[in-house]
Design a protein around this nucleic acid. Sequence first.
DNA 1: TTGCACCAGTTGTATGTACATCTTCAATTG
DNA 2: CAATTGAAGATGTACATACAACTGGTGCAA
Lengths: 370, 370
Amino acid sequence: MKDNKQMPKYLQLKQEILSWFHSGRLQPEEQMPTENEIAALFQVSRQTVRQTFGVLEQDGWIYRVQGKGTFVSNPQSRKEENTQTIGIITTYISDYIFPHIVRGAEAALRSKGYRLLLSSTDNDKAKERESLQLMMSQPLSGLIIEPTKSAEGNPNLSYYLSLDYKQIPYLMINERYTEMSCPYLKVDDEAGGYLATHHLIEWGHRRIAGFFKMDDLQGTHRLKGFIRAHYDAGVPLSPELVVHYTTEEKEEKPFQALVSMLRKPPESRPSALVCYNDELAVRLLEAIRQEGLSVPQDISIVGFDDSTLATATEVKLTTLTHPKTEMGALAAELLINRIEGKTEGKQEQEAHIFQPEMIIRESTRKIETK
Amino acid sequence: MKDNKQMPKYLQLKQEILSWFHSGRLQPEEQMPTENEIAALFQVSRQTVRQTFGVLEQDGWIYRVQGKGTFVSNPQSRKEENTQTIGIITTYISDYIFPHIVRGAEAALRSKGYRLLLSSTDNDKAKERESLQLMMSQPLSGLIIEPTKSAEGNPNLSYYLSLDYKQIPYLMINERYTEMSCPYLKVDDEAGGYLATHHLIEWGHRRIAGFFKMDDLQGTHRLKGFIRAHYDAGVPLSPELVVHYTTEEKEEKPFQALVSMLRKPPESRPSALVCYNDELAVRLLEAIRQEGLSVPQDISIVGFDDSTLATATEVKLTTLTHPKTEMGALAAELLINRIEGKTEGKQEQEAHIFQPEMIIRESTRKIETK
DNA sequence: TTGCACCAGTTGTATGTACATCTTCAATTG
DNA sequence: CAATTGAAGATGTACATACAACTGGTGCAA
C-alpha cells in the first residue's frame, strides 16, 4: 500500500482492496478478511476499515451481513446496479450509412445486455457539447464517438478529459481528434480509391474522372488513392478530370461539371467516373442519361459504400464495400471488452482499419485499349 | 423525535430531519445547523450526527462543504438524479424511413434536455421483449414504441401493464396494439391506399394490381383503401390482382407473382401497380425490366413513403408522403408533455393522424379508357 | 487601500472503547 | 436423537477525543 500522504488512509485502503479484486486474489462471493484482521494487517483502527468498507459497499463491490461477515459482490449483481448504458454520438442519424453503423452497434450491445443512448451533432460543435453534457449527466459505461469536423481542433476537450477522469472508456469511429489518443476504427479510404481506379485502368480506361467531397477526410483519402493508382500504372491524369466539391455544393457542382465534360467530343470525354459515394453516383447517372449516353456502354461508373442506392438503380452500381454494420458491431464489442477489463495484458491495438472490397456489378465494362 | 427503540438513533434522527425538509422548515440552499448544534439539540454525539448526514448526503438531500457547513440540496439538482431518459423501440433502425423518425425524435428530445435510448426489434417479438426488459431495467421517463407485427396481437402485454403500474407514459407510432389504449401517431394508411388507387383509376387504369405486406396493420389498411377506391369508382377488382405477403417473403413472393402476371397476354395484364412501399416498388421495377416492359409506358407504378429510393431510380417514383421526421418530433413532444404533466385539463387527443399526400412523378401515366 | 497573518468555526480524518445484534457451531440437556 | 443453550466471532450502533484541512472574517502593517 503506497503511503501517499495526499490521500487519506481510508481511500488508500480502498485502492489496496480494489487491487485485490482486480488481480483476482479475491473471488466473487468469497468472504473478505474480517474488519479486525484488516485493521491489524494495515495497522489502522477498525473504524477506519469500516469507513473503507462503507465506501466499497456503496460502490457495489462488497456486501455485509451482520454476524456473518463481509463478502465480495457478484459482478453480475454489481452490473445490475451500475448502469449498463453506452452512448453513441454521431454526426448524422438518418443519412445513408450511419443508420447501419448504429444498427450494428445496437444489436451487439443489446445481445450483451447494454442499452444504447443515441445522440447526433449535425456536424455542429455546439451540439456535440450539448450531447456530451447530456450523456454524462447520468452514469455511463462507455462512449462511441464519431468526431465532428476536427479541422478546427477540439473545443470540447474538457469533456473528453473528464471522461478520462471518470475512467469511462471511449473510442472513435471514422476519424479521431488528433489531440487525443484513444482506440479508433476506420475504413482504409485511400485503398478504396486506389482499388476503384485500378479496376478501371485494368479494364482499359485511360481517361477517368474523379469527383470527391473535400470537406471531410474520407474524400481527401479517396482522392489520394485515385491519384496514386494513376501514378502506379503510369497513366497520366489531367487536372480537369478531378472535381472537388463541398457538402453544400453536392447537388449542383459535380452535376454541372460532368455535363460540361460530356458535351466535349467523344475522344476528349472521360470513359469512366470514380464517385465519392453512391449518392453522388446516382446523381451523376442522371446527368449521363440527360446527355443521352448510357452506362456502361458509353461511360463506366464506380460508387462507394455499397448502400441500398447501389442496387435501386436500373444499372446496378459497381461500388466498394463499407463495413457499416460490422464496424458498429466491432466498435461495441471493443468498448465492452474495455469496460469489462478483458484487455488486461494483451493491450488491444489502438487502430482497427477495415479494408474495402470491390463489388463489380453492371456499371463498369472492359474497353479496348487504344 | 419519537423514541422508537426499534430504530437506531441515527435513523430516527434522519426521519426527524427529513420532516424538516417536508414541512418546509428548511428551504433549499439554506444552511443546516452545524453538526455540533444538532448533536447538542438531540443529546447525541457528533459522530452519530455525522452518520445521519452521511446517509442524507447519499440520498441527495444535503451536501457538505468542508470548512463552510452543510446545506440543503436544491430539488433541481435532486431531480437531475432522476432520469431524463426516453426510450424508443422501433422495428428497424437502418431501414429506410425509420432513421428519419428517430432523427426527428432525437432532435426534439435533445433540445428539451432528454436523452434518447434506442432499441430495435427486427420485427421479432422475442427481441421486443428483450428490448422492453433492458429499457425498464433502469429508470425511464417515457417510451415511444413502434409495435412489432402489429396485426398479430401482443404477447408482451405484461410488460406494457407494468409500464402503467410504474406510471411511465408511453405512446405508439405507425400503429398500435388494439388491446391497449394509449395515445398514438399514425399516417392515415387507408387514405393513402385510397389516394394512390384513385389517382390511377382517374388516369384511366382499370386493371390495377396491389401488393401488400399483411403482417402489420399498415399493409392491411393500405389494402383497405385500395379496395374502397375500386368500390367507390365502380371498378371491379379481380382477386388475382391482389398479392399478400409477409416480411419473410418480401424478396421473392411479390416478385414472382408479378412476373407471372406480366407473362399473360397484354389485355389480361395489369396496367398499373400499387405497392406496399417504395422498397417493394423498386424491387418490382426490376421484374418489369426483366420482362422487357417499361415504366410508365407499359405499366404505371405507385410507391409509398417518399423515401430516398423513390428518386434514386431512373424513372422517379410516384409515391405518397410519410411525415417521417415530423412524426418523430411530434411523438417526442407529446411524450414530454405527458411526462411534465402539461396535459392536465385539456386532455390530449388520443390519436394523431397524419394525412398522406400524393407526389406525382414519372412512374405513372394517363391511359385511354377503353 | 492593499496585502498578509491570524483566528474562530466548520467539516474531514483517525483512533479508541463499549456494547448490541446477529450467525454459526459445538456442547449440553431432555 | 432432537432441541436448547451458550460461547465465539462477526458486523452494527454509539460515544469520546484529537487533530487536519478548509472557509470567512478581523485586524494589523506596509
